[in-house]
Design a protein around this nucleic acid. Structure first.
Length: 287
DNA sequence: TTTATAACCTGAACGC
DNA sequence: TGCGTTCAGGTTATAA
């Protein structure tokens, strides 16, 4: 389940294999992802296009070509990308293959087809504007300066939604999924069901610090391997060894020894320590 | 405007 | 062993 760290790891892993390479052809499985794959336009417009940039925004990979075309890829729940030798056996659920000029292929594999591929053609004068619009509602990157304590305090004003759902909302802040929301809240000692507006400035500072620390550490570890995710190298990450609460229900808390509890918040499995993370109500005297 | 929920999808795990 | 059910979860659309 690729979240920001996993997408960042894939991006860094793919970059040296893609930069300055030209796309020879594009092949699609014909199966629809979350949105229809723009196969025909990619086949027409990307042929011979040189890749000049690969970057990440939120949980999206952005591939740019010299002729101005842009491919935006979301890995969904089970999506993965990797470089393979041309002609090597394809796997079930390989949905898009970009053949490169050095006898390799960039492949997009997605078992559950929750992923998405968007293509903004080179000859469209409004491409830059369209891409800007595409990300217009996406919140700031957790590492950016605009993602500050003040930003969160303002954004959370009068919001009664659970803090865990709030930080997982991509319109609020980009890239935080279920795993890292659970972990960051644990490290901050904040109950996941606390209303977003109930956090004090001090708690927001602690939470923002821990979101950044958790994401940074996960990137350094190569992400987390939870059933589906493999980095661009084909190796799994090992951040899951650092999980303190995620998937640990019934186990003892590493800090206090209490049993980790599991509940459903916003339809998502949520894990927390009932002692270290206090209660659903705001901390006394912490406002 | 905010919140809640359903839908999309496949495979693993589980119970019978 | 085989079948049916449940669960996992990011994003979007829709309803309340």
């Amino acid at each position: 389940m690729p979240e920001l760290p996993e997408v960042e790891v894939i991006c860094r892993g793919l970059l040296p294999h893609l930069l300055n390479r030209s796309i020879v052809s594009v092949h699609c499985s014909g199966k629809q992802l979350r949105a229809p794959v723009p196969c025909q336009s990619m086949q027409t417009m990307l042929q011979g296009a040189e890749i000049t940039k690969l970057s990440r925004r939120a949980k999206y990979l952005i591939l740019r070509t010299k002729n101005g075309g842009t491919v935006i890829i979301h890995l969904g729940m089970t999506g993965n990308m990797g470089i393979f030798k041309d002609g090597s056996p394809t796997k079930k659920h390989d949905h898009v293959r970009w053949r490169l000029d050095n006898n390799t292929e960039l492949r997009f594999n997605d078992t559950r087809r929750f992923g998405a591929i968007h293509y903004f053609p080179a000859n469209n004068k409004n491409t830059t504007q369209e891409i800007r619009l595409f990300f217009a509602k996406t919140g700031p990157e957790p590492f950016s300066r605009s993602c500050s304590v003040r930003y969160f305090v303002n954004k959370a004003t009068r919001r009664t939604i659970a803090i865990k759902q709030f930080i997982m909302d991509s319109h609020v802040v980009a890239g935080i999924g279920n795993i890292y929301a659970n972990e960051a809240l644990f490290h901050s000692g904040i109950h996941p069901e606390r209303p977003a507006s109930s956090l004090s400035e001090k708690e927001w500072r602690r939470l923002l610090t821990n979101i950044r620390k958790t994401l940074t550490h996960a990137i350094e570890c190569g992400g987390s391997t939870i059933s589906d995710f493999l980095g661009a190298s084909g190796d799994g990450g090992y951040f899951q060894m650092n999980f303190r609460v995620y998937g640990k229900d019934g186990e003892e808390c590493v800090q206090c020894g209490a049993f980790i509890l599991k509940s459903t918040i916003g339809g998502r499995a949520s894990f927390f320590c009932p002692v270290c993370q206090g209660t659903k109500k705001e901390e006394k005297g912490d406002k």
